[in-house]
Nucleic acid binder design. Structure first.
Length: 742
DNA sequence: TTAAGTTAAGTTTTT
DNA sequence: CTTAACTTAA
């Protein structure tokens, strides 16, 4: 009896076929993570491979973290020397050691999409590019897809020869790379591209890593792009023990450069490859699986695969069409409440999935009024928020002022009376003397054109220098606190006294706790290390299991996750599939990608699935009238139940709101939850007490101001009764009500 | 020259 | 409905 006996035959094959290239086609819910972890254990325990020689690559930090955890639990000693990380962090790790061999400094900074856009704006201005015709966004997109395909600026120019527009793009591409190089910065795509460049150009480095990574596993292989493929090919070039796991039916990142032929042609790239299919689904009910199969069957050009399950038929799929998107959100909220009430599910069993981030708002609003704890994944990444980016820019500047972008970002935040004109003069000076922007600031007094503006710059430079000298004594989180204190950043927000400012302050608090926990978890914390860790996190990474809240996210974010009950919202032609894909030049192809997305969505559900849509919906202030999504029609009709709701004008919306849920769950506060959720669901219970009492005036994000008339302690939380001035009397749980004393 | 106030334009999906 | 670019007042 061994741990491998619990696997089915195909899974076992995936575990024990360790030598040579292996393609595992893993249908949704077929237990591929189990195969990967068991395979790793097998390599170490049965084959006696040193963990040092094993590498696993995933797309998200969350996936990497999960795999790491499960491998650790299974392998025990030595598992920490396995590289388990994302493509991007793997590359950063390699580049930090060796990028000097291709002419960069090893303390390079990483630019996010925002930073890239700022660079692009400047370039367009400098090259006199009419951004009405060539939009920054599309220029960046062109550059990004070139990088995905490993096309360097020179190659791009070569290929562009005949086409004026393309030649212009080539020019911009070249300039963009120059600016990044000058700033010692890499963008996301560069992380991969430069690693490939390094491995291609430096035989010594390549040999080192080839020798090290004798066994390589790649998860979500269907989403790799050409550059990532080349990276893997190079690394696995010597031993060729490459195991890739993926599902062509779940390829949903074409827009990000994913090359579906990486998986479809794997056997061509590696002629002696073994292909293993995992076709038994352990996740979903028969009905859910049938629905998914019914939809995906409409795609041509996929690897033949027939997913089956030994699970029960389960409930029918609940399909509901509503009059408006409000009614849709209302239904989902009520349905969740009723599931909770009769003990069928907990909040953490639910997920609401949608095509676009904008759809989250209606659900969010509705969940607040219903006291449903929730968490939104995605939207604006935590580290991409203004306030967080501002503080990060301070930290970057203190750490290493070579990043002009960061310096420029904060030089006038808070307002120091330094405007665009002054900045331009400084950067002209920097340009003339070939020094960095920050160095030019240091010499502000010597820049004649500045005049009295130089006096405004001096305190800023002094501040940065002072902080820099304090860094060794303070550590990251204390430094951050000091920056906030000295700049008055939070004070300024407090003075604003708006809901928005409040959210920002909470984000800043959260940012501080991230810094604290970084210092606690890291053996040798450093400012540079912190900045690096923060540069590569995605929003999905913060999602924790076992927490009691409903999760809201896009279908893209949902890949790789599963939930007992899933709502697929906004299933309307024009929304999903998106209008863009329907009218596209290659609509067939794009619709297939959308269909795969639908397939991903449906297969997230374990027990129950509800599909909802609305007849009319406000999109960017305009009302749209949409038909039921074509994907719904591809689901065999006998699998569907539910009804199509007729407009109900007689019923007032007020009546529909269940103001007092009968048995609201006592909530545990998840740590590290996303900021949207935190903003609305944050526990005001500090150390088991509230900062308001009976008789106090409080404000609520939705109901406005009111007076507290009662507080009842129950379990871990407080049930607070508030008489609102305009919204009547409500009972709510303190941790979700976000009541603010006024 | 800066900063506040006003008007115009734009939205898929993201490491 | 929200964010970015433009205009005007200080």
């Amino acid at each position: 009896m061994s741990i491998y006996d619990t696997l089915n035959e195909q899974q076992k094959l995936g575990v024990t076929t360790t030598e040579g290239p292996v393609l595992i086609l893993a249908g949704a819910g077929s237990g591929k993570t189990r195969v990967l972890t068991h395979r790793t254990a097998y390599l170490i325990e049965e084959k006696g491979i040193n963990p040092y020689h094993i590498m696993a690559i995933t797309f998200t930090n969350k996936a990497a973290g999960e795999m790491r955890e499960r491998i650790d639990a299974m392998v025990g000693y030595g598992s920490e020397s396995i590289w388990v990380s994302t493509f991007h962090s793997t590359c950063v790790r390699i580049l930090r050691r060796h990028i000097d061999r291709i002419g960069y400094d090893t303390n390079f900074t990483i630019y996010d999409a925002d930073d890239s856009k700022s660079v692009m704006k400047e370039i367009c201005k400098r090259l006199n590019i009419d951004t009405k015709i060539y939009k920054e966004r599309s220029l960046l997109a062109a550059i990004s897809s070139a990088k995905d395909e490993l096309i360097a600026p020179d190659d791009f120019a070569l290929k562009a020869a005949g086409d004026f527009g393309k030649r212009r793009q080539a020019e911009v591409y070249r300039e963009y790379q120059n600016v990044l190089k000058k700033n010692n910065a890499l963008d996301f795509d560069d992380l991969i591209v430069k690693t490939v460049e390094l491995l291609r150009n430096d035989a010594e480095v390549l040999a080192y890593y080839q020798e090290r990574f004798r066994y390589i596993v790649v998860d979500e292989y269907q989403d790799t792009n050409t550059a990532q493929f080349e990276l893997i090919r190079l690394l696995a070039g010597k031993y060729k023990n490459l195991c890739v796991v993926g599902d062509d039916d779940q390829s949903i990142y074409k827009f990000r450069g994913a090359n579906i032929y990486n998986i479809l042609n794997f056997e061509k790239h590696f002629p002696d490859a073994v292909t293993i299919k995992l076709e038994q689904n352990y996740r979903s009910t028969q009905n859910i699986l049938d629905a998914a199969n019914g939809v995906i069957a409409n795609n041509v050009g996929r690897k033949r695969k027939s997913l089956w399950t030994a699970n029960d038929r389960g409930e029918q799929i609940d399909f509901e069409q509503f009059d408006t998107a409000y009614d849709e959100a209302d239904f989902v909220a009520r349905d969740i409440q009723s599931g909770i009430r009769n003990g069928k599910f907990g909040y953490g069993d639910y997920a609401v999935l949608y095509r676009t981030n904008a759809q989250s708002r209606l659900f969010e609003e509705r969940f607040i009024t219903s006291n449903i704890p929730y968490k939104i994944v995605g939207g604006v990444n935590f580290y991409a928020r203004k306030e967080v980016k501002d503080l990060l820019a301070y930290l970057k500047t203190i750490d290493n002022a070579r990043d002009d972008l960061a310096v420029r970002r904060i030089i006038n935040v808070p307002k120091r009376g330094i405007g665009a004109t002054t900045l331009n003069r400084v950067s002209d000076y920097a340009e003339d003397y070939g020094i960095s922007f920050y160095d030019a600031l240091k010499q502000a007094d010597e820049i004649p054109s500045l005049g009295k503006a130089a006096a405004k710059i001096r305190p800023f430079v002094t501040f940065i220098q002072t902080m820099r000298s304090k860094l060794p004594y303070l550590g990251v989180s204390e430094l951050l606190r000091e920056v906030i204190e000295e700049t008055g950043y939070v004070k300024e927000l407090e003075a604003e006294d708006t809901e928005e400012a409040q959210v920002r302050i909470e984000n800043i608090d959260e940012f501080i706790s991230k810094a604290v926990s970084y210092e606690e978890n890291e053996e040798q914390p450093s400012l540079g290390g912190f900045l690096e860790e923060v540069a590569l996190v995605a929003d999905i990474d913060g999602l924790e299991e076992g927490n009691e809240y409903v999760v809201l996210m896009t279908l893209h974010s949902a890949k790789g996750l599963e939930f007992p009950k899933v709502y697929l919202a906004g299933m309307e032609d024009g929304l999903f599939p998106s209008y863009m894909s329907i009218v596209s030049d290659n609509a067939t192809e794009e619709l297939e990608e959308e269909r795969r997305l639908a397939y991903v969505g449906i297969t997230r559900a374990k027990k129950e699935l509800a599909i909802t849509c609305a007849r009319q919906r406000m999109i960017r202030g305009e009302t749209q009238y949409n038909k039921v999504s074509r994907f719904v029609k591809e689901i065999p009709a006998e699998l569907l139940s539910g009804e199509i709701r007729k407009p109900s004008y007689g019923e007032s919306r007020e009546q529909k709101l269940p103001v007092r849920p009968k048995r609201p769950a006592v909530s545990r506060q998840p740590s590290g939850q996303s900021m949207q959720a935190k903003a609305f669901a944050s526990a005001r219970t500090v150390g088991g007490s509230l900062d308001y009492g009976v008789g106090d005036r409080v404000s609520h994000v939705k109901f406005g101001n009111g007076t507290v008339t009662g507080i009842v302690e129950g379990g871990r939380d407080f049930e607070v009764t508030v008489a609102f001035d305009t919204a009547g009397t409500k009972k709510m749980f303190a941790s979700f009500a976000k009541l603010k004393k006024i």
